[in-house]
Amino acid sequence: MKLKLGILDQSPVTMGSTSAAALANSINLALWAEEAGFNSVMYSEHHGVEAYGSSSPELLAATVLSRTQRIKVGTAGIMMRNYSAYKIAEWTKFLTTLYPGRFILGLGKAPGGLKDAVMALNNHKPVVLSNLETKLEEIIRYLKEEKGEYEGLIAQPVNLQKLPEITWLGSGMTSAKEAARHGVGYSFAAFMNSEYGSENTDAYIADFEESLLHSTASLQVTVAVSVAENIEKARRNAYGMAYQFLQSRQLVSPEVVLPPEIVEQRILGSKDEEEFFTVLDRIIIETPQTIYPRLQQISEKYNTRDLLILCNMYSEEDRMNTFKNIILHNQLSH
Rank of each mutant, 00 (worst) to 15 (best):
R249T: 11
Q250L: 05
M241T: 11
S248H: 13
A242Y: 13
E300V: 02
E273S: 09
F277R: 02
A242W: 12
V257C: 06
R294E: 11
P293V: 02
R282A: 13
N303Y: 10
L308I: 11
P293T: 05
S253M: 04
R266F: 02
T287C: 11
L251S: 11
Q244D: 12
T290V: 05
E286T: 12
F277S: 00
F276I: 03
I309M: 02
D306Q: 14
D272T: 03
F276V: 08
I309D: 00
R266M: 12
Y302W: 08
M241R: 14
P293E: 07
T278H: 13
L295Y: 00
L307C: 05
L280E: 10
G269L: 08
Q247S: 04
E274N: 13
V257A: 06
T304N: 10
Y302H: 09
Q247C: 01
P260H: 04
M320N: 11
F245G: 14
N312A: 12
R319K: 12
N321Y: 06
L251N: 12
I298M: 02
Q296E: 09
V256R: 09
Y302A: 04
L307P: 06
E264D: 14
R266W: 05
C311S: 15
E275H: 13
D318C: 10
C311T: 15
Q244I: 10
M313Q: 15
I309W: 03
L246M: 07
T287A: 10
R294A: 09
L307G: 00
S299E: 10
E273C: 05
Q296L: 07
Q296K: 11
K301C: 07
T290P: 03
T304A: 03
P260N: 00
E275R: 14
V257T: 07
V252T: 07
V263F: 08
K301Y: 01
F276P: 06
V256F: 04
E300T: 01
Y292T: 04
F277T: 01
C311H: 15
M241H: 15
I267K: 05
I267Y: 06
V252Q: 09
Q250F: 04
Q289D: 13
L246Y: 02
E317Q: 15
Y292P: 00
L268N: 09
M320W: 06
V257R: 03
L295R: 06
Q297D: 12
I283M: 04
L307Q: 01
D318I: 10
R319A: 03
L251A: 08
R249N: 12
R282W: 12
Q289V: 04
Y314E: 11
P259H: 01
I291Q: 03
S315K: 14
P260Q: 00
